[in-house]
């Protein structure tokens, strides 16, 4: 299977099952598109007629093109077969080994963002902070259940984790104290709304946190409309300067500005560009996930505009690359040379298998998006998993368990999509969130267009 598309003046062929990307001229684009449907003689006649006014398209050129296509097919780089399906199930069986925890150190927040999937940070339950003892037990649980894996990850999450900052710092120290004897390396990360960021937080994070995620939605009016205090007052002015200081202190590396876009800003490219103009270099925005009845919920009628925004953003990034003052966008960061292995691509984020969320009182859920939904309560960090039946649903979750994904060119990039989004939109973790798929495919097209442009123009991504 191939996916052929045109964007920004480039003719692009994505070979679905090999991961190869080909940039081609107009005539070759047509030839490859017809290659599996017509005979060579039919293709040749069609191309000669279509390009009769183009002196660069000769019968000899077309024959050479056929030869190039055949060589690529023989090399497994074009029209490659899908040889992974039979081994997908056994890949997944190997994944009952834990390697990452989302540590909910605070169920509570100093903001009351209107779109918060966690119900203003409280996950539709009582407020609470994780105790140091519970946190230590969570790290022990991770070590005990991580098998031979050496690299372990812990994200301090909430609510707002900085409401429980002293415990976070002590847990980092505890994790470090266990590294040598357990033979593990901890990678700690933090997700924050920024209100409590100060010199202590910045200094500690720069020393100990492999990544920090800083929540900013873009332009002031966009951010303040939904990221506000219980009083309704916006938070943009209070966090922006702190975030700038934080990002600069990290030398503009190993952090993400992370925004959410909604029906209120279907022109979200302007919000990303605003963050770039503030000096931030590592950017990301995500579509809001919420009930369709919310006034800010994205709707089907927004889809065309949203796709255009991804192209506008990619073109702006390309302009800035040419000037040497680019920025990165999370969804456009694809590694065409040394990307993830096929196992990772088939099995995705590891929800409910390699990755679990821990609540302040030590309960275990498949991931942060399921916390608070009792149907997905797996057990706790003292007694382990009690609901193997729930885990089984996630264990069986891979791109080959979604029949809708079978012929999708993006399946080895999206890995079947987000199980939580699938559950919330279809009622099944093995469902397919079609709205999300449409956006994902567009992002992949844009990301690969940028790769093609960089290759064709010999551009380096410098920032």
């Amino acid at each position: 299977m191939i996916h052929a598309y045109k964007m920004n003046g480039y003719n692009i062929i994505i070979d679905q099952n090999s991961g190869c990307v080909h940039s081609v001229d107009e005539a070759t684009f047509d030839i490859i598109n017809l290659y599996k449907e017509k005979s060579k003689d039919e293709i040749k006649a069609y191309i000669i007629e279509k390009y009769k006014d183009d002196p660069e398209v000769t019968p000899e050129d077309i024959d050479t093109c056929f030869g190039d296509i055949e060589a690529l097919i023989a090399d497994g780089r074009l029209f490659a077969e899908d040889t992974f399906e039979q081994t997908a199930a056994q890949f997944k069986k190997k994944q009952g080994v834990l390697k990452a925890l989302c540590l909910h150190v605070a169920h509570g927040c100093n903001l009351a963002c209107k779109y918060c999937f966690a119900g203003k940070g409280e996950y539709f339950g009582p407020k609470g902070l994780m105790s140091l003892e519970t946190g230590k037990r969570a790290l022990d649980f991770l070590i005990e259940n991580s098998g031979t894996r050496k690299n372990l990850e812990v994200d301090f999450f909430g609510g707002e984790p900085l409401l429980n900052w002293e415990v976070c710092k002590k847990l980092v120290a505890y994790g470090r104290s266990r590294e040598k004897e357990s033979g593990k390396n901890f990678r700690f990360t933090l997700t924050t709304n920024g209100l409590l960021v100060d010199d202590d937080v910045i200094e500690f994070c720069n020393k100990e946190m492999g990544n920090v995620v800083l929540s900013l939605d873009g332009r002031k009016e966009t951010h303040d409309r939904l990221r506000c205090f219980p009083s309704g007052k916006g938070s943009y002015d209070l966090v922006t300067e702190k975030f700038k200081r934080f990002a600069d202190a990290r030398n503009q590396r190993d952090y993400y500005m992370r925004g959410t876009y909604t029906h209120y800003n279907t022109d979200f490219a302007a919000d990303v560009i605003h963050m770039a103009d503030l000096g931030f270099k590592e950017l990301s925005v995500e579509p809001v996930v919420c009930s369709g009845t919310e006034p800010y919920a994205l709707r089907q009628s927004d889809l065309t505009a949203l796709k255009e925004q991804y192209e506008i953003l990619a073109n702006e990034m390309l302009k800035r690359y040419r000037k040497g003052n680019g920025f990165t966008f999370y969804h456009y960061m694809i590694d065409l040379e040394a990307g993830p292995c096929i196992v990772k691509r088939i099995s995705g984020c590891g929800v409910g298998t390699e990755y679990l969320a821990v609540t302040p009182n030590g309960e275990l859920y498949p991931c942060h998006q399921f916390v608070g939904d009792e149907k997905f309560l797996l057990g706790d960090i003292w007694n382990g998993i009690r609901r193997a039946d729930i885990l089984k649903q996630f264990n069986e979750c891979n791109i080959y368990s979604h029949k809708e994904c079978k012929d999708c060119f993006a399946k080895l990039y999206c890995s079947g999509g987000c199980a939580a989004n699938a559950y919330h939109s279809t009622g099944s973790v093995n469902g397919v969130y079609e709205f999300g798929c449409e956006l994902y495919k567009k992002r992949i097209e844009c990301a690969i267009m940028l790769k093609v442009a960089q290759a064709e123009e010999n551009l380096k991504v410098e920032y």
Binding site: C20, V21, A27, E153, L336, K344, A455
Partner: peptide
Amino acid sequence: MKINTLNSGCGECQT
């Protein structure tokens, strides 16, 4: 005419 081809578990990668 111009094909330009751009390119040709251990569990340790990031989640």
